[in-house]
Computed example of a mutant assay.
Amino acid sequence: MNLWILNEFLYFPDDKSEYIPAAIEMAILLVLCILVFNFFRRKARKDLEKTKELEEKILKEKQSLHNK
């Protein structure tokens, strides 16, 4: 690929203070991503426990019907 094409999309500011808003936004998004990831992990753990309880209940009902 021609490097001249890529140069039009790259912008590196001389004033490094222009990086501050991008760094703040990146930090906020990183924290949000971590929070959402942890939320899904907790939700999955709760759903797994509910599924195990339901499975145990069904197996007990099946065994009680089979024993009769």
Rank of each mutant, 00 (worst) to 15 (best):
M1W: 14
L3D: 04
L3R: 03
I5R: 03
L6E: 12
N7K: 09
E8L: 06
F9D: 07
F9H: 13
Y11M: 09
Y11N: 07
Y11G: 01
F12Y: 06
P13Q: 14
P13C: 11
D14R: 04
D15C: 01
K16W: 01
K16C: 02
I20E: 11
P21L: 10
P21F: 09
P21D: 07
P21S: 08
A22R: 04
A23L: 10
I24Y: 11
E25M: 02
E25R: 00
E25Q: 01
M26I: 15
M26V: 11
A27F: 12
L29D: 03
L29I: 10
L29Y: 05
L30S: 01
V31Y: 06
V31R: 06
V31P: 00
L32C: 11
L32M: 11
L32T: 11
C33K: 08
C33E: 00
I34D: 03
L35Y: 01
L35Q: 01
V36T: 10
V36Y: 02
F37Y: 07
N38H: 14
F39V: 11
R41E: 07
R42M: 08
K43S: 10
K43H: 09
R45L: 11
K46E: 04
D47M: 13
D47Y: 12
L48S: 13
E49D: 14
K50R: 15
T51N: 12
K52H: 06
K52C: 02
K52V: 08
E55V: 15
E56H: 14
K57F: 07
I58A: 09
L59R: 13
L59V: 12
E61C: 01
Q63Y: 07
S64F: 09
S64I: 13
H66W: 12
H66E: 15
N67S: 15
N67D: 15
K68L: 02
